[in-house]
Amino acid sequence: MQTSPVLPARGAPARSLHRFANPGRFLRISGRVLPFLSAAALVLTLAGLGAGLFLAPADWQQGDAVRIMYVHVPSAWLASFGYVALAVCSLLSLVWRHPLADLAAAEISPVGAGFTALCLATGSIWGKPMWGAWWVWDARLTSVLVLFFLYLGHVALVRAFDDPQRGYRAGAILALVGVVNLPIIKFSVDWWNTLHQPASIGLTGSPTMHFDMLWPLAVAALGYTLAFMAIVIARTRAAVLERRIHGLLMARAEAVR
């Protein structure tokens, strides 16, 4: 697995981004990083969720139901961050024809869809006891549902063509078009009146959340972020091998013919 005799050796050492495009090098580096990343993700996620469940105080009006926040908020952040990562990969793929970016984009969207589904489900579970409704069609909830459908659309589109290159191209265009949804999600609670409350944590101003609740949330969010990265890297590694298998079989079929 260390070297890649299967792939044709690249000519002159390519400059700029394509330095990271060599799948053999990607497998080597990611193989070294992944165990540490996974371990850190596991420890931080369990620590954050455990602290949220047992150490953090209840809320003065929501009671213990506020603890759902430690799952809901990190998954909501990752739903958006994951889409940013998908858009960056799509840009690399469309403009620079980066071959690893194609594979990574195809592997990010199912994971992003999963975390968005987690965000929607935990939000629903939180909304029923607090607001009194599982779901409302306000601007925040609706725009996150649109994000979920964008992810699903990308998952389907990338796999819809016989020629994978065309799928990657179409998926990248869809992903970049969908970027307009990200500011809508972020600012929906400020631009329109919604049932969903505005953000507690922003770049400016003191967080409107007690510190005893803030640190478990930060730890859980960091853990979930590392978990998301580890999952995407692991899936991309598998995809690199699968592409190599596909290439080998095709080459063999050609040789036989």
């Binding site: 809320d59 003065w60 929501q62 409350q197 507690s200 959340m209 609740m213």
Partner: peptide
């Protein structure tokens, strides 16, 4: 026919609120 509660973005322990 239906009343939903809309809570704000502040989160604090009961002791602090008290």
């Amino acid at each position: 026919s239906e009343v939903l509660a809309k809570h704000d973005e502040t989160y604090m322990p009961p002791e602090v609120a008290e």
